[in-house]
Design a binder for these strands. Structure first.
Lengths: 178, 178
DNA sequence: CAAAAAGTGTCCATTTTTTAGACACTATGC
DNA sequence: GCATAGTGTCTAAAAAATGGACACTTTTTG
């Protein structure tokens, strides 16, 4: 295992004390720990720095703690960097917010107070998971399997929905062992 | 809009009163509402009936309410029916459980007590979302985009990871407008 | 800094895949 | 029982992928 396995992490939280704690906790795992106290300039930051993962707090507007801010910035970041994994963190454990965060593309959802070891483990898991990308053939095989499942075995219909001919679907099924 | 847009829903909950309430609430939207009080025979049930969606309670073992049962059955069902959408429902709002449920492939996560209109809307959303499946070309374009993003624009590396030649990747990028 | 290494963009001829169209056969529904 | 829809397989022609090559540009690194 090389030391530089986990690159740069960007932490966004409006509480300086929490940033300090996280910097300390994460510096052992990540090559660099960048921090921001407000998400407003995060897109500029991301275009300047090469970041492997973002740890994003959900609440910024003082007194408004429903996570709308966090969801907004999550979506903004994902729109411009769809491959960049984002882990959410919040003090206000809210099932609905967690569900919306994950459905909006967050990789995980952490609640404060956090356990340092567990946090590091989860962040590592996220980066490990995103590193393995499938070949086109593997992707194709999975998608074909899904299409056929969804068409209850109707090859003609599946082929139509996949945008290929029935004969080609037969070929691919044989070649890809579907 | 045809009446039969939303097919058969299978509801699994160990509380008869809740099943009755759900049957009433869902019968207006779904053609059929099947119910079970224990998940033990769900796989048998699914092989006999054609079900469009499963609504699965998370807690079955009396006194043990950490949702382990629900997660187990969620994974068991998904293993055999990867295309079947499953919505989780639980009385014990638990962020961690919700996160694990969604990461295990659940389509949504509902907490009791639920709002009937919101429940129906969420279930409809799940079925509407799963109905549009992409063509192979669309799938390919997305996957290629991801690979190139992840390789920071290195075409040679992206092609290798995709399992195709560099020239083929150029061809596909031109054809698919990536 | 300069050489070496790696990547780019574009050719080629050959092989493989996809295509439209056809065929006889088998379910399924009314 | 007849019609409609789907199956599995076959052609010949069109399209795409392949390994290999090329001159050129960028990146690494001793």
């Amino acid at each position: 295992m090389q030391k530089d396995k986990y690159g740069t992490i960007l932490v966004i939280d409006d509480n300086e004390a929490i940033l300090t704690a996280l910097r300390y906790c994460l510096s052992g795992t990540f090559q660099r720990v960048l921090t921001m106290t407000a998400p407003d300039s995060v897109l500029k930051k991301l275009s300047q720095e090469e970041v492997s993962l973002v740890l994003l707090d959900m609440n910024f507007s003082l007194g408004v703690n429903n996570g709308q801010d966090g969801l907004f910035w999550l979506r903004a970041i994902r729109k411009h960097h769809p491959e960049l994994p984002i882990v959410l963190i919040t003090a206000y454990a809210d099932v609905n917010l967690a569900v919306r965060g994950l459905k909006s593309g967050a990789s995980d959802f952490i609640t404060k107070p956090w356990d340092n070891d567990e946090l590091v483990r989860k962040l590592k898991d996220v980066l490990d998971a995103q590193n393995d990308l499938a070949t086109l053939d593997e992707m194709e095989a999975e998608h074909i399997q899904r299409a056929i499942d969804r068409c209850h075995g109707n090859v003609k219909l599946a082929a139509e929905q996949l945008g290929i001919t029935r004969q080609t679907l037969y070929n691919k099924m044989k070649k890809l062992d579907v």
